[in-house]
């Protein structure tokens, strides 16, 4: 009985408990912050510059040219994909259609990045506390 009470009131017990809670919280925060969120807009970067923002609601097809090469980008049914590229590895094409912000489409040889802007959907969380 005395031991149990001693444990409950000891600094070590609480330090360990709170440290564990902190670790669990950090893990949860990291896990949830990377959960995919879909968005209505895609941002297209060429050589680290935002060159175009396209709506995913409207089907479209266009070409992005840079000094290094070109990519043909297609928007269809709220999803965006690269359908043609003059790069060697074709990773951007193989990634297929993307509609969430988890992994952006990147074509390293041509310096192209397509990122989904999920700020509109995430604003639902911005409640007053």
């Amino acid at each position: 009985m005395k031991n149990a009470k001693g444990l409950f009131t000891s600094n070590i017990f609480w330090i360990v408990l709170f440290s564990l809670l902190v670790i669990v919280c950090v893990i949860i925060i990291f896990a949830t912050s990377h959960s995919p969120k879909s968005g209505k807009f895609a941002e297209i970067y060429s050589d680290n510059r935002l060159i175009r923002t396209v709506s995913l609601d409207k089907d479209d097809e266009f070409t992005v040219k840079s000094k290094k090469g070109y990519n043909i980008i297609r928007v269809r049914k709220g999803k965006i994909s690269v359908i043609e590229s003059d790069c060697k590895n074709k990773i951007c094409i193989n990634q297929g259609e993307v509609s969430n912000d988890l992994i952006p489409i990147v074509c390293v040889p041509n310096g192209l990045v397509i990122r989904i802007d999920s700020s509109e959907t995430s604003s639902d969380y911005d409640a007053e506390i």
């Binding site: 809670l21 919280c25 950090v26 925060i29």
Partner: peptide, 9 residues
């Protein structure tokens, strides 16, 4: 989790 973390700190 964010609130719990900040509360502990």
């Amino acid at each position: 989790p964010i609130l719990l973390l900040s509360a502990i700190v």
